[in-house]
Write a protein that binds this DNA or RNA. Structure first.
Lengths: 222, 222
DNA sequence: AATTAACCGGACCACGCGGTCCGCTTCTGT
DNA sequence: ACAGAAGCGGACCGCGTGGTCCGGTTAATT
C-alpha cells in the first residue's frame, strides 16, 4: 500500500497540485468554512475536478490540515534542538499564529468537528506529543511555569487565533500583543517582559468593518 | 417614541416573551449559529410567529445580545463600587464566561459581523467604556499591569470563550484554568497565583467527541 | 353570542451549500 | 496519425437555511 500503481495523467497531476495549493492558501487565510466553489475557481479548474481528486471536502481539508500539522511537527522537532528552550517554544508559537494568520486552517481544525477525523486526529496527537516535549523542556529550563500543560498552552494560542480571526483584518500588532500576554501568562516571570506595540483601543477593532457599516454614532460611555 | 401605542394582544405578548426566553437560552448556550427553527420549536410556536415578532434573525439576535450587554454593563457598574478593584474585575469576567458559557451569545457577537449592527455596536461601546473604567481602576490598585488596555483584556477573554466553545463540552475546570492564565497574563504579579484544577491532557479535549467517532487509534508520538 | 381584527403556524419560496453525472476534450501508447 | 481511455467542467440534484404568505383560529369588544 505504498504507491498506488494507478498512475495519474500529466494534466490530472497538475490540477491536483493546483487544487492543493489553492486550498492551502485559501483555507489558511480565511478558514475552513470557505466553499469549495471558490477553491476550484482559484485553482482554475471546475468543481467536478475537485471532487474527483478528493472524494469530499472533508478529504481535501484533511489532506491540507495534516500537511500543515506535519510541517508544524517538523518545526517543533527542530525547536527541540534549539539552544534556548523557552525562546524556541515561543518562536514556534509565533510562527504558527504569525504572518497574517498563516495557519488558520490548522487552528480551525482544532475543534471536535475536525478532530473526529481519524487522519487529523492522528497527526494532532503526534503534534501534541512534540508540543508536550517542548513545554516540558521549557519548564525544565525555567522558562515556563511548572503547573501548565501543553493543552493549556495550545488552548490559549488557539484562543488568540480565534479571537483575532473574528475580525476581518485585525492589525498584526494586536495578535503579537496577545501572544506576548500568553507568554506572560505561562512564564514564571509574569509581566517581566513589555508588550509589543501600543495598547489597542476600540477603534482597532472597528477599523475592519468600515465596509458596509452605517456610520454608527459610536456613543461614548462615561 | 417611548411606548408604541400599538398594544399587543395577550397571546402575542406571551409568545414574544417565550421567543425571547427560548432564544436567550439557546443562543447563550450554543451560540448564534443555531437555526431559527429550533428557537421557534423550543418556544412552542411556529416559525411564522417568530418572524412576525422579529423581522429577521438579526433583529432577534440584536435584541438578545443588547439585553445581555446591558446586563453586563449593569454588573460592571456595580463592580466599579466594589472594595477590591482587581477582584471585582476578575469576578466580572468569570461571571461572564463562567457557568457553562452562559454568555456565549455575547462573545459570539464580539465579531465584525455582528458589530456592524448599530444597536449591538452602541451597547458594545458602552460596555467597553465600563470595562475600560474597571481596568483602569484595577490598574490604579496595582492589580493589573499598566500596559494593557480594556481591548487587550476583552480579546483574551473572548479567546478563552471561543477556544472552549470549539469543543462540544469542555470541562468547566478547563475554562477556569484558562481564566486563571488570563489573570496571570494581565496581572503584574504574573504566576503568583496557582491555577485551579489539574493540567488538562489531550484526553480532556477528546472526551467530548466520543459521539460518532470511529474509535481512532490515538497513536502516541514519541 | 356575535363580530371583527389580530394572530397563529405550517406550507411554501429563493438561495447557497456539498456532491453527482455525462457529453466533450485532451493526453498517451502504438 | 489514430484510437481509445482518462480526465475535464458545467449542468444538475438534494438538503438545509432564512424569510414569506394565507387559510384557519382566537382573543378582544359590544
Amino acid at each position: 500500500m505504498e504507491e498506488e500503481p494507478r498512475r495519474l495523467r500529466a494534466d490530472a497531476e497538475r490540477n491536483r497540485r493546483r487544487l492543493l495549493d489553492a486550498a492551502t492558501e485559501i483555507f489558511c487565510e480565511r478558514g475552513l468554512e470557505v466553499g469549495v466553489a471558490e477553491i476550484a475557481q482559484h485553482a482554475g479548474v471546475g468543481r467536478g475536478t475537485l471532487f474527483r481528486n478528493f472524494p469530499s471536502k472533508e478529504h481535501l481539508i484533511a489532506a491540507i490540515v495534516v500537511e500543515r500539522m506535519n510541517e508544524s511537527i517538523t518545526r517543533g522537532q527542530a525547536a527541540l534542538e534549539a539552544a534556548d528552550p523557552g525562546q524556541a517554544l515561543f518562536d514556534l508559537i509565533e510562527q504558527s499564529v504569525g504572518r497574517q494568520q498563516t495557519d488558520r486552517a490548522l487552528f480551525d481544525a482544532l475543534a471536535d468537528t475536525w478532530l473526529a477525523n481519524n487522519e487529523i486526529r492522528t497527526a494532532h496527537a503526534e503534534l501534541m506529543g512534540v508540543l508536550d516535549a517542548l513545554v516540558t523542556r521549557a519548564q525544565q529550563a525555567g522558562a515556563v511555569r511548572d503547573d501548565v500543560s501543553a493543552v493549556d498552552v495550545l488552548m490559549m494560542v488557539k484562543g488568540v487565533c480565534e479571537a483575532c480571526a473574528s475580525f476581518q483584518q485585525v492589525d498584526q500588532a494586536v495578535a503579537m500583543r496577545q501572544l506576548d500576554l500568553v507568554r506572560a501568562a505561562i512564564s514564571p516571570a509574569g509581566a517581566a517582559r513589555p508588550l509589543r506595540g501600543r495598547p489597542p483601543t476600540i477603534a482597532d477593532l472597528e477599523r475592519a468593518e468600515e465596509t458596509g457599516a452605517k456610520t454608527a454614532p459610536t456613543r461614548r460611555a462615561g
